[in-house]
Amino acid sequence: MWGIEVIFKGKNFLRLLGGLGTALEISATAVLISIPLGIILGVLMAGKNPVIKAILRVYLDFIRIMPQLVLLFLVFFGTTKAWGWDLSGEVSSVIVFSMWGAAEMSDLVRGSLAAIPKHQYESAQSLGFTPIQTKMYIIIPQTIRRLIPLSINLITRMIKTTSLVLMIGVVEVLKVSQQIIEANRMTAPDAAFGVYLFVFVLYFIACFIPSIFARKLEKKWS
């Protein structure tokens, strides 16, 4: 029915999971790079140096304005044309998602730091905490509590956006489904529905698990 049987034909099921694996691998690598980088950039953005702040602001806005697909084309095709770099689709994807994730993460960190009331610093100072102690015991723990649900949300957005990387030739879950649908065009013309339904379920599971986790933490800490 609806071509769902196609999913279980041959190695199709494993291929689809493999495609999801590729998508998750790209997002996981980008997360591992962009979160620490974003934290550093966010702290700098919350800092006092106006030059650094202006540069980071321009960077953030640039990444935000550009559609992710354009960024992917720019890195994958653009660098080859301009400098003769031969980056694979996967590497280009990781670069783009890391740049994007770091920009978004830095803004989350900046926002979370800015949301800590000035009075938290003052009451800490009046109790005799040094600036370093204040950050360690009072500011950072509160910032992390605000950040964890927000960064999980960012991670699920990254997972979803990996569906674009098929455009630069990365064989991820959506590309695999297209291949399966093409191959079964004659025997199961309605396979598109079943296969894409299955892809939907896969994306849903991959994003829902971190979302529940985020909601639990949010409830615990809000």
Binding site: P117, H119, Q120, E122, S123, I138, P141, Q142, R145, W221
Partner: peptide, 10 residues
């Protein structure tokens, strides 16, 4: 002691 208490919320 401040007007807005300023306990550490965490």
């Amino acid at each position: 002691v401040f007007q807005s208490y300023d306990l550490f919320p965490h």
